[in-house]
Design a protein around this nucleic acid. Sequence first.
DNA 1: CTGAAAGCGCTTACAG
DNA 2: CTGAAAGCGCTTACAG
Lengths: 334, 334
Amino acid sequence: MVTMQDVAERAGVTKQTVSNVIRGRGAVSPATAARVRAAIGELGYTPNLVARSLATGATRTVGLFVPTVTGSFYPDIVEEVEDVLDANGYHLLLCTTRLDGERAKRHLAGLTSRSVDALLIAGDRDLIDHLPLLAEASFPVALCAWETDAPDRFPVVTIDYERAGYLAGRHLRELGHERVAVLASPDHGPRVAGFRRAFAADGLTVPDAAVHTASEPTPAGGFAAATAALTADPTITALFATHDVLALGALEAARAEGRSVPRDLSIVGHDDNPEVGVARPALTSVAIPKREMAREAVELLLRALTRSGSPANSIQLLRPELVVRDSTGPADGR
Amino acid sequence: MVTMQDVAERAGVTKQTVSNVIRGRGAVSPATAARVRAAIGELGYTPNLVARSLATGATRTVGLFVPTVTGSFYPDIVEEVEDVLDANGYHLLLCTTRLDGERAKRHLAGLTSRSVDALLIAGDRDLIDHLPLLAEASFPVALCAWETDAPDRFPVVTIDYERAGYLAGRHLRELGHERVAVLASPDHGPRVAGFRRAFAADGLTVPDAAVHTASEPTPAGGFAAATAALTADPTITALFATHDVLALGALEAARAEGRSVPRDLSIVGHDDNPEVGVARPALTSVAIPKREMAREAVELLLRALTRSGSPANSIQLLRPELVVRDSTGPADGR
DNA sequence: CTGAAAGCGCTTACAG
DNA sequence: CTGAAAGCGCTTACAG
């Protein structure tokens, strides 16, 4: 392997002159700079990043933890993070925790050893127990896509999930719906709370019995929960699913029950995944700006890096937006 | 930051004794090992991986290039690669090239500088022009999920795509289909060739005019191509889509044309993505062992690392398997 | 079983 | 504008 010393000898200078021309810093005469560049080209020299990292204390690598890279949520996060990183000359070290706390812990320990300049943790499932490990990390850490129990030790950039639920509720209220049910995944408390708030604003209440927890975040789980909801209270005129996949299942359930959407039943989803636009009827859903969220989170980290301080310990909430399509209509069914 | 030297002083030994107990190598008396371990605990010492990398010349990091991390193909690859890496104590540096050759090149250049112990390139889109950059890489490189034009300079682990097409063709032949059409994505030449081989074996030929190239790898692209195929030759009794998403569109097209699947038209997909099992009718598809492929590829790389030689320059083909569901039936339509 | 030395390939002040 | 020195935090032979 060719080293900086080799280049220096070839160009007839010392190695820190070579270092200077490579980094474009310090003062080097145009003539010697040209000689150095020529030597680099002839030798095919490429600087050893590991050595540079040891000397500078920076690896220009950012770690990202996500629960998984399948599904329709996290891949966008990963790509957005990578885009921002790439634009700033950083690399991405990826860890998918896959519902495995031990694995998460192991990776966390590995990264703590200076091999990463900053760390972004997206999603709340597997890492929460091990977050204390990061308390004394020597690099900035931020959290994103965190819905519940965000530890207040780190800055977090996430969605205003409570408002997302509120938007869904307000939309149904504006359409005149009074008796409704919710299909919820276990960790979606804030969305449910926001939904209820919209009804409470009109003096209506969504009883606990109207909130049906889905056994799994799949269309099948949504189908079962929706069927349960329609059986428990056949008079409901609308359904809020805290996740689009559940809404997809609810669409099937409505069909199975012989209820036409949106005439007999309105359905609102959450996330605005690409597939909900092609569902029939196209699903009304709360869109969450996940790419913007990811971008804000990385940029926060990058800012901390250049200003070499820790980021402000704050929580930043991105605002969701309701996307109205064909699965919701007036409560009176006309 | 606490260093090995600090631990050494605290334990009353020299730093390479500390190094020895950490790595569990060299001979250290149980008593001093215990003292060292105690000191490590008290100080909260964690070894600097960058310094270790500089000394050993290994980063215990493997780079992975994929075109994207969205969709249903590459995420599985990424997770499988990470699983194998994790089991062997390696980290994952991820680069998604996103159809951007410049970006790919930039990352390639970055990784060449010793910051990665090995490199796996999955998918053939964006990197082929820059592969020569890797010719003199000092670390092992392997390719996987490569369908066409695999450069013969590197070992490749991929799917026997020609056989995948053949399996689809043979299945249709066994059902008695004679007049058929193919919906193909541009880069799927081998699948089409294999499909044709199955017909040629029976003295039949699939004319060029029966191969319809989809404008885009989406249901919409499949819909358009299928419609074109059915219009060009209304007598066909079966369709092979080289990608499941195209098959999904073909299903719609058949519906639109008033042809019942599989009675009036049989459809075979490719990839066996999870969604094709829930399509109605459930799609017959050629399943490709992508996780096994990814596993083989990383393990090949890891083997090269431990044996510190370059991997054998070979091509390993994983065999696909046909999964018969409800979208195919006999040509006579009974 | 333990310690002193050299080295991995850079960068960072600091003289000249 | 250029060069000699020290140092980043480890590991790897090699003496004792």
